[in-house]
Computed example of a mutant assay.
Amino acid sequence: MQITNSTPADFDTIFALYDEAIAFQKKVFNKQWEGFESSLIETEIRENRQWKIIIDDEVACIFATTLSDAIFWGERDLEPAVYIHRIVTNPKFRGAAFVKIIVEWARGYCLANQLEYIRLDTWGDNPKLIDYYEKCGFSYLKTIDLDNTQGLPAHYKGVLALLEIKI
């Protein structure tokens, strides 16, 4: 298993995994992602913020990171943190506990970059997913209702839960 940056060659794979994730979300929850602009993914790849987990030469999981997320985190965004977004598991590898693997990777990333937190958000009305993230080491902090979603993907409406791990 290897965690490495995604490349432009992964572009179609990333979008295929997003499409599969959206189909899965429709089966298990009353909300789902509404797709993503290709420019967002191109920027993340160019800035080395789009990641992939490779197992046996196959993309098993993808996720994105950023070092700032002020829209969600407000003043707490000033604290040094890595923010994890859009964790997607290839259906062939479902059940492999990639969130726990990403958390361990992120701990190392934080230590190497003098960051104090690993953070993520999810829908605030999805207690099953919040509980899973807590079992992976995250602490639930609070829910927020975003006033300004300009520039964000369309699925960012309603209440979001904020979770973090202190390093």
Rank of each mutant, 00 (worst) to 15 (best):
F72P: 12
T4M: 13
K26S: 02
D69Y: 10
W123G: 10
D145S: 11
M1K: 06
E58L: 09
I102L: 09
P153W: 01
N48D: 13
I22W: 01
L120C: 07
F24L: 13
Y18E: 14
L146W: 02
D147E: 11
A23N: 08
F11E: 10
P91R: 08
L146G: 06
E37C: 05
A60I: 04
Q50S: 13
L152H: 04
L162Q: 13
Q150F: 03
I14V: 15
N126Q: 05
V82K: 07
C136Y: 00
K128T: 11
F138G: 02
K157Y: 11
L146H: 03
A106R: 09
P127L: 06
K31R: 12
A21G: 04
N148F: 00
N126F: 03
Q2F: 06
G74K: 12
W123Y: 13
Y133P: 03
G95P: 15
K92M: 10
L129K: 03
I3Y: 07
E164L: 01
N5I: 06
A81S: 15
R86L: 12
A64G: 14
E79P: 04
F72W: 08
E20L: 14
Q114D: 15
T149S: 13
W33S: 06
I55Q: 14
L152W: 04
P80L: 05
I167H: 01
W33Q: 09
L160Y: 00
A81V: 09
I53T: 08
I167G: 02
I118V: 11
E79H: 10
K52P: 03
P80G: 02
E104P: 09
E134I: 08
C110E: 10
R46S: 15
L40T: 04
A106Y: 08
D77S: 14
L120I: 09
I130P: 05
A9E: 14
A96Q: 12
D121G: 08
P91M: 06
V103Y: 10
E134T: 11
I54C: 06
A16S: 13
R76I: 01
R107I: 13
A161C: 06
Y140C: 03
K157Q: 14
I14N: 08
K128G: 00
W123D: 11
A21K: 09
I87V: 15
E134M: 13
S38E: 15
A154C: 00
G74W: 03
A64T: 13
F24D: 00
T4Q: 15
A16N: 11
D131G: 04
P127Y: 02
I102E: 11
A60T: 05
Q50G: 04
R94T: 15
T4I: 11
A81N: 09
K92L: 14
E20V: 00
